[in-house]
Design a protein around this nucleic acid. Structure first.
Lengths: 217, 217
DNA sequence: GTTAATTGCGAACAGTGTTCGCGTTTAACT
DNA sequence: AGTTAAACGCGAACACTGTTCGCAATTAAC
């Protein structure tokens, strides 16, 4: 029942480690954005060249998956109590926090099916919350997948909101009168919308619509 | 009231055109994926080098935005009738079809705020559908943005579903007993879920939850 | 005919992920 | 103790990428 050692026989002791590499990559991504995470940058922050990393990581793509897996450890699933909906909302809320701390996460989880331990634990915990519902297996899986995707999509919209630059070309186009509704709506804008509320309400009603809330507790 | 000509005075006539470039780029992306769309590839399918494209396009990023703008012309907004929800569901349904034909679209719209003509027309049409509701301006804008994001997120999940590879490492992990819910749910899977229905229902209940359906018609 | 603006684009630059091959280290097996 | 074989470290190179520069060619206006 050894953990993982087909043979740990010969060869020099590894000078680095997968964990350390992923940690440095995450730090780099948090500090300077995911586009700053190149194998060269990670390797050089480790004091070596890019080729060395391939002893610990199969490809750049795998590195990004491992990065997602690492931050997925930040979930605290013990804190999820209450009804099925309440548990899932809690998970989503935590996810939102995580994606705020690590803005590069949403794009990765949206495009790749990450199947590493912590990501599977996320799935597992979501399914546990749905265990007592009447939903079919297929719907359960779909629900958890969408929970994660929704959180990510929302996080990306937050980012777009923050870095929104009003290009003068857009303003010109608005003045042509081609977009009356848009022009009017923009002029009616007063306060900028509580995005935390909108998120929680969006998640809650989405889950309710799927039928998570039928046999509530 | 000339359209756009500060001066169209001197110089040789352009040999190519922005439209043709974007068209070729879209064709390439449809046929071989967005990763096959490099400036070199587009240029060479045009019979020239990459530097030539910069007379028509500011950057690779702008090219991708123009690509999205081009496929956004495939929306038929005249076909949207009925209540506010019904109109938005129709738009979302069209978006789903578009993103199925052009699988590279979701990732771009999720990460960039595309503000070109056809994309603004999408926004405009969505706001028109919401014009008679009691929603605040901020909520209206947020609703249309989420409509687009939801469609894209769903499309990406479809893609993941299709190209899902069962890595043997994952199966091993399942057999360890660390993920009982996941194991059980996967074994209970019978039919694979009608994703078209799930999409439409998801959109519909999401919109309803926001309050689009209150003053229905 | 001169001038000035615009286009086409080869060449080069700085960057990327990835592979190869060789030297070195280590442990196991004679 | 000597041999063998597996694992590690990593410089060098490869095939790409987006982007910039500079200059020749073209065109229209003065």
């Amino acid at each position: 029942m050894a953990k993982k050692s087909p043979q740990k026989t010969t060869g020099p002791k590894p000078r680095y480690s997968r964990e350390k590499i992923v940690e440095l990559a995450v730090d780099l991504a948090d500090a300077q954005g995911i586009e700053a995470v190149s194998l060269r940058a990670v390797a050089s922050s480790l004091g070596t060249g890019p080729a060395s990393l391939y002893r610990y990581v199969k490809s750049y793509d795998q590195l990004t998956e491992l990065m997602v897996d690492r931050i997925s450890a930040e979930y605290d699933f013990d804190a999820c109590t209450g009804s099925a909906i309440e548990q899932l909302v809690n998970i989503a809320h935590q996810g939102r926090g995580i994606m705020r701390r690590h803005p590069w996460v949403p794009l990765i989880v949206l495009q790749k099916q990450v199947m590493t331990h912590n990501s599977m634990a996320y799935l597992e915990r979501g399914l546990l919350a749905l265990a007592d519902t009447e939903l079919s297996a297929a719907v359960k899986l779909h629900t958890i997948a969408m929970l994660n995707s929704l959180t990510a999509a929302f996080a990306l919209n937050d980012q777009k909101q923050d870095e929104q630059q009003e290009a003068s070309a857009v303003n010109e186009a608005l003045q042509t009168g081609a977009y009356p509704q848009l022009l009017r709506t923009l002029s009616e804008l007063k306060q900028p919308l509580d995005r935390d509320d909108a998120f929680e309400q969006g998640i809650r009603t989405y889950l309710h619509g799927i039928g998570v809330g039928v046999g509530k507790y």
